[in-house]
Simulated assay, not measured.
Amino acid sequence: MKINNNILSTIVSCLFFALFSWIVILLLSSKFSDTFSYIFFVFIRDHGLFAFLTNAILLCGSGVALGFLIIASWYNKLDVWLYAFALGVCIGLVYIVVFSASENPTSQEITDVLLIESSIDHRSVMESIWDYRWRILLSIVVYACFIFMPLVFAITHLVPNTKTYAGWLLEITKPSLNVVVIALFACAFQPFYLKTNAYDYIDLALLIAGIILLCIVLVRQKYELNFYGYSNLVMLGIEIVLIAICSNILASSDQYFSVRYMLYAFVFVVWCMECMYGYITYEEQPK
């Protein structure tokens, strides 16, 4: 498992702490404050604050990709595949933001957000899966690419041969432990009980499997984490306890996934930043 104890990991951990603090404040306010009991539902509405933060993160990711192209060109260190990847990220993220912004925002009342008013119906399991197909597909990608693959590779001690081009490319793009922890944090944002669909329990089972794998990796391999690495693990643990307490809040609306979209965007952008930073600072590229 790749451990990044550099300036980039410090910046990422600080941003992660800011997102963590904001989410904690919203959940605790909705759970324990009568005055702000609906504040979480206000921000998860369509075209609400979390949708804005998602677009802002994606635009930052596009800017990072553009900066990478400029810096790599300046130092004459452009690999064709990473160049195509960075260019695709730069254009693709802007397209996603523009497409999202072009949708006509509709006025959405709090009662429309609450599951008791709008989301509970008599759809079959297959109908529910079809309705949520995009969020399910996105979650599968996050689980597979940013959680299970790097953890399984770490447990089985699969290390790419960096003397070959393919192995070098795998080493550059391998998610770090911080990316895995943040991805688990994103996937943990779900109600642990009061679930309304069968696939929600699959989501929970995958989360538990990911946490177990992470614990195995941390126990078997003694990683030398810095303060920020340990703080990310602590924030993941606090979030799990918090969600266990506030699951009824998340279960009240299926639009809690707006928060996961934001965190998924953060995971992807952080991973891109690590790949590009690793490429710029890598000493030698195999032919």
Rank of each mutant, 00 (worst) to 15 (best):
K2E: 09
N4R: 12
N5H: 04
I7Y: 03
I7M: 06
S9L: 02
T10I: 14
I11S: 08
F16V: 01
F16S: 10
A18F: 08
S21P: 01
I23W: 00
V24R: 13
I25P: 02
L28N: 02
S30M: 08
K31T: 05
F32M: 08
S33P: 08
S33I: 07
D34C: 08
D34G: 14
T35H: 00
V42M: 12
V42F: 13
F43V: 09
F43G: 00
I44M: 00
D46H: 10
H47S: 14
G48D: 05
F52E: 00
L53S: 08
N55H: 11
I57W: 02
L58V: 01
G61K: 01
V64N: 02
G67Q: 03
F68S: 10
I70L: 10
I71Q: 04
A72K: 05
Y75G: 00
L78R: 14
L78N: 11
W81P: 01
L82I: 10
L82E: 02
L82D: 04
A86N: 02
A86S: 02
L87N: 05
V89P: 02
I91E: 01
I91V: 12
G92T: 00
Y95K: 06
V98I: 15
V98C: 05
F99H: 07
Q108C: 12
T111V: 13
D112K: 10
L115D: 10
S118G: 15
S118V: 02
S119F: 01
H122P: 00
V125C: 10
M126K: 14
S128A: 13
W130N: 11
D131E: 12
W134S: 00
I136A: 02
L137W: 02
L138M: 07
S139L: 11
V142E: 04
Y143I: 08
F146S: 04
F148R: 05
P150F: 07
H157L: 14
P160N: 13
W168C: 15
L169W: 11
L170H: 05
T173K: 14
K174W: 09
L177A: 06
V180M: 11
V181N: 09
I182M: 15
A183S: 15
A186V: 04
P191N: 06
L194A: 13
N197H: 10
A198E: 15
Y199A: 00
L206G: 04
L206W: 05
G210H: 01
I212E: 07
L213P: 00
L214S: 05
C215N: 11
I216L: 15
R220P: 00
K222W: 04
L225Q: 04
N226T: 12
Y230A: 05
S231L: 08
S231F: 03
L233T: 12
L233F: 07
I240C: 15
V241C: 09
V241S: 04
V241H: 03
A244N: 03
I245G: 00
S252N: 13
S253D: 12
Q255S: 08
S258Q: 15
S258F: 07
L263S: 10
L263V: 10
L263F: 15
V269H: 12
C272L: 03
Y277S: 12
G278Y: 06
Y282F: 04
E283K: 15
E284H: 13
P286T: 08
